[in-house]
Design a protein around this nucleic acid. Sequence first.
DNA 1: TGTTGTGATAGCTATGAGTTATGGATGTCC
DNA 2: GGACATCCATAACTCATAGCTATCACAACA
Lengths: 303, 303
Amino acid sequence: MDVHGRDLRYFAAVAEELNFTRAAERLFISQPALSKQIRMLEKQLGADLFHRDRRAVRLTAVGEALLPHAHGMLAAWEAAEAAVAEASAAEQHTLVIGMSTSPGRGLLPALRTRLVSRHPHARPVLRQVNWADPSAGLADGSSDVAFVWLPLPDGDRYRYAVVAQEPRLVALPQGHRLARAAADSEGAVDFTDLLDEPFLALPSEAGPLRDYWLALDARDGRAPRIGGVVGSAEETHEAVANGQGVALLATGNASLVVRDEVIAVPVRGISPSRLAVAARRDDERPLVAAYLAAAAKLGAGTS
Amino acid sequence: MDVHGRDLRYFAAVAEELNFTRAAERLFISQPALSKQIRMLEKQLGADLFHRDRRAVRLTAVGEALLPHAHGMLAAWEAAEAAVAEASAAEQHTLVIGMSTSPGRGLLPALRTRLVSRHPHARPVLRQVNWADPSAGLADGSSDVAFVWLPLPDGDRYRYAVVAQEPRLVALPQGHRLARAAADSEGAVDFTDLLDEPFLALPSEAGPLRDYWLALDARDGRAPRIGGVVGSAEETHEAVANGQGVALLATGNASLVVRDEVIAVPVRGISPSRLAVAARRDDERPLVAAYLAAAAKLGAGTS
DNA sequence: TGTTGTGATAGCTATGAGTTATGGATGTCC
DNA sequence: GGACATCCATAACTCATAGCTATCACAACA
């Protein structure tokens, strides 16, 4: 049914040498092993490939018929191996960078520059991931590294470098009562004033991250009112503008949501947001390590 | 280095099903066996072929690169198998008929007709063999059946059917003294009159056959004079015409030597020649058996 | 929360691809 | 013609591997 490529290689060698002993030497196996393998191949094909005269070995008609196919298949396999090696190398040098929203803050160009200076062959590829996955593709392997918001669910599966720590804002519809209140109070609001507001939440799959953007730890155990579930910056903008609810934002992301009817004001009394570059803890590939190292350096510089 | 075709087949199946269990069923092997084989292939290539998410199996970039090659090689092997089968069938139906000189006597067309009436696919192929090989190619396998002169050296290795038994003639140059003597004596000569003539002999490799055409058994142990060694009808004609020696002939072969300066006259006192169709005793192939059977029938009819 | 589906793992067996040692036939050299 | 070299086949053994069954781990789903 199938052949082992080796058998074809052996066959081609014997066909070329027309001498089992020399062919075996060339193949770095013993002569009996070669004899046996050729016999097995002949048995499998149900036809002799060589005429073993006492004095000479020569191809039979069947052998002649097989030889060009054997050469073709050996060449085809070499080509296949080369294709695999190439694809493999390309994969080695590709770094998939997951992100839920554009990290902005000039981070991507800075990290890219640092990465390619260390690994000139590196090909960073950006990948947008739904907000439902707080690991931005790390969990299912679709990203190699990712921009994530801390805290990360299953945090011990990852390692990360914080690249930005910023106060959180709240996005409000332009006419909201708290928008006016903030204008009176140094342009900020207390989180306690937001406790009864309906909040836009991440999908429940987001786990701890959903709780974090609801600032659950600042609510003293009282459940938040959920005004809706959002999966992207665009949806958030729409929902806020429509008055479905308010939403906490990282300062660096305000520009994605604030426009038209929506404004954002700082919130006092909650922890700042922390944006990190993360990778799977067990992923030791050089490119991944280099990207994380670059991020750590950047984070150290800007914190 | 090499692949087993089986592994490519397995890979292609999994790539198509994107499900190990179903692919294994389709391949009539167990799922663990398939898993293991794919892992081995991946290990051999040094790259993963499939992305095994908990929920889904999908090809990696490397797998995508390999797949078309795998399909190509599987198709190539099918083509190779077909080529082998075809060549094998052709060989099955080919009967190589060895002969030292054309057997004449209408034997070839008669036997050919009988053979193809029994085996319509049979392709008889004629092969001229040097006189040095009295088995006309049977010994070294270059003929399947052969027209031979009895006695045959290593006679027990062959089986045969006598197709012609004829008095032997002697070929003489036209002006030879015995040519005239024969004309006086019923057109024949006694072998005793030839004892001192130089004889043309077959090459020494011919063994008993050489002795036979020197009629050694009719010489009472006295060595013949050898006038030369001949390897074909043409050489014999030349040598006789030149007076190098005389030569015994089968009646049916006289026409090959007798022309121009050479005549042939019957010889009294020696056994007749026996022409047979022979095959290797251990060669039981239907075509060979059929040819021999046809020869036996023909021999029985004409003897 | 049990059930189903799916892939990986473990442990076993049989096959097969390799080894060395040896046999037997042929050809070669003095 | 005898010693020797060449060459393919066979025998007996070893070790890797391709297959099996049984089972686990995990996700999806009802």
